[in-house]
Design a protein around this nucleic acid. Structure first.
Lengths: 134, 134
DNA sequence: AGTTAACATAGTAATTCACTTAGGTATTAG
DNA sequence: CTAATACCTAAGTGAATTACTATGTTAACT
């Protein structure tokens, strides 16, 4: 089945929560977990990965928490998902029986990745489109 | 990791082999397996699924084999992959913490599926494009 | 010093993947 | 008729992945 795992979906949800945080205030794992219904422990791992990829920054200690590492204009969904799940839609090497098909799948990968080239700040647009279309 | 499993890739390879068969002649599992380097037993399962989805037809007995059920113009890659792997990129239900994100993922699914809306007969084009661009 | 929250690693049950194994059934050559 | 061939089907299997949980460590604030 072709799908993004919950890890990637959780990651986007967490990043979205940070983006929506008023005045870009620090958010604690606790808060994000409550908002998104992601398990606390699992979210810790996810945020840790996002930090390694420099998508978020953290502050430790009693008033610690997370915030976006950059402006939401500079963060794309593809980076979030790929930092958590590895490169999207990798062409499998030992399957290639023909150059034609290899070329085809490489093309598919490229186009699929393009679909996820969406800025974090534009994430709400599909909902708004839906809303205004009524 | 986000990727199409080998099952889907094998399915497309097998369908492509049938499409390329001269005069749309029947091909035996043996032949397709040899061409594509897919294991015989696994390919049997895949072709069986493709048959259930009415993408190929089969003839049994000593001179049996497979051929496309319809013209290659009427078969799209999305149908091949989804008949083998289930619907592409299903939005996970219990993850939806917000309507905004649900809406976003539904949108992503739609767009990803559109990428795979490619006719079997157009499958060689990415290679040709590559070739002529040199 | 003690509380709190981020950080790190290991473990685990359940599921999926990519097959293999073992047979059954339809068709036809001889 | 019967043996051979090829399609058809179900069940099993080892390895990998998923979505966590558990346990402990380190940093910062009061």
């Amino acid at each position: 089945m072709v799908s993004i795992s919950t890890k990637g979906i959780y990651g986007v949800a967490a990043m979205h929560a940070l983006y929506k945080s008023p005045n870009a205030k620090l958010m604690q794992i606790k808060e994000i977990a409550a908002m998104t219904h992601i398990s606390h422990g699992y979210l810790e791992q996810i945020l840790s990965s996002l930090k390694k990829s420099s998508l978020v920054v953290s502050i430790r200690g009693i008033h610690g928490g997370y915030k976006l590492a950059h402006d939401a204009e500079k963060i794309i969904v593809l980076d979030i998902v790929e930092s958590l799940e590895g490169k999207l839609f990798v062409p499998n090497e030992n399957v290639g029986a023909s150059i034609v098909l290899d070329s085809f799948w490489a093309d598919m990968q490229e186009q699929t990745r393009k679909v996820f080239d969406i800025k974090l700040c534009d994430l709400d647009k599909s909902y708004q489109t839906f809303f205004y279309e009524i």
